[in-house]
Nucleic acid binder design. Structure first.
Lengths: 224, 224
DNA sequence: GTTGACATTGACGTCGGTGTCAACTTAGCT
DNA sequence: AGCTAAGTTGACACCGACGTCAATGTCAAC
């Protein structure tokens, strides 16, 4: 009996592939994950072979299946891991003190910093982000992971907008929730589009455009 | 010799698959193309099988290969065909006369119409557009097709902006070329993001947001 | 140093989709 | 009716990726 025909819904999966209990096992899993990232970035999701991954990790083909049930499974693990890293690195960080200026200018400056960080991150992980986009289109689980990440992001932005409203810098009647959604969608969409279609945008100019759009949308003064 | 190892770069291609010369042949090709669209929309690119396509068209498996060299080949044909249809339908069309109002208001109204048409079209072909996005990420030829389509689009927008500048409605020192790129990227990106991530945007609201962003970017008065 | 649970190995069977091809059908022409 | 080129058919060989598993290795604990 080759693959036990148990009705598990996993599209290409096999055994559950439990997490390792040993130190050695954990190292092995990590190596496989790193190798998977490498192979995926080089070959894309479709072209990547499980064989290539185990080969890149320098281990036997079979070992792969000790830790991951299928190619899709490693990919999901990779997405989860990367998303965590990503948000850790994007969390509130103490930037070199904001420039002197009116509260509005400081706010715009902060927005600019955030956009710059986002674009830079996207650029550094272009291959992987493109892969995420790709797999999102056909794997519901990956889509869910990204959706969750996006929700967290929207929440943070909404929070910032509400803060600005409390400070009297943004009109109180602005729908913070909806605006946050729109702004996040805009940034993600723009950067994704730029990325996938190899647009002509130069990084600095893209950041400037984003910041301007945000400022305009929120009614903050734009520095020309 | 199974697949003749000729060094044609086609990733999964076979014979050239010439165009039909007979009326019958043309009908057959059209049927296959329609069936392909159907199957792709239902199953996605990866899950779609050449067998399913020929079955859906009600013809023998072998007939498929008379007209298309591979799954990728039909898909490309489908993209080309759809893009043509799409631009034909988006071309300048005589809308019900614009509302009375200042020239600025008329301009904004026209922008709103264009955005509305674009969103509606996207919505009607959601499945197919998502597929285009997906395949774009790994098929250079499809990417090229879309890039060309995007260039045409940017050209049209740039033309409109320049017209507005000539009419004195938009600042003359605005970089029309760059703005056109940015605006097109914004619309495509936003709509794509909304589509793929199943955002909460309601169609009317999305159109309104897009129009507002355009107007703000161009310095036109926004109707609140 | 023996034990046994955990980890690793890689040759192998299976599976399903792909593309081929030789035989057959259709339809336009003389 | 007979001929021929174009179109159609579907059984089949092939391929290559996948996931399995019996054998073997590792190492901490006793």
């Amino acid at each position: 009996m080759p693959p036990p025909p148990e009705a598990v819904s996993g599209p290409a999966g096999t055994a559950p592939a439990a997490l390792p209990t040993t130190e050695r096992g954990r190292r092995m899993r990590a190596r496989l994950l790193a190798a998977a990232r490498e192979v995926f970035e080089r070959d894309g999701f479709l072209e990547a072979r499980v064989t290539d991954i185990s080969a890149a990790a320098g281990v036997a083909h079979g070992s792969f299946y000790t830790y991951f049930g299928s190619k899709t499974a490693v990919f999901r693990a990779l997405v989860a891991e990367t998303m965590d890293d990503l948000y850790a690195s994007m969390g509130t960080r103490h930037e070199p003190g904001p420039p002197d200026g009116s509260p509005e200018e400081v706010a715009v400056h902060r927005i600019d910093r955030a956009n710059r960080r986002f674009v830079a991150m996207y650029r550094q992980n272009t291959a992987l982000m493109a892969l995420f986009e790709q797999v999102t289109t056909f794997d519901p689980e990956v889509r869910a992971l990204r959706q969750a990440a996006r929700e967290r992001n929207v929440g943070r932005v909404r929070h910032s907008i509400e803060q600005l409203q409390r400070d009297g810098l943004v009109a109180a009647d602005l729908d913070a929730e909806y605006s946050a959604h729109a702004l996040v969608a805009m940034v993600n969409g723009l950067v994704h589009y730029w990325l996938v279609l190899d647009g002509e945008f130069e990084q600095e100019r893209l950041v400037a455009a984003l910041t301007r759009l945000w400022a305009q949308a929120l009614g903050l003064p734009v520095r020309t």
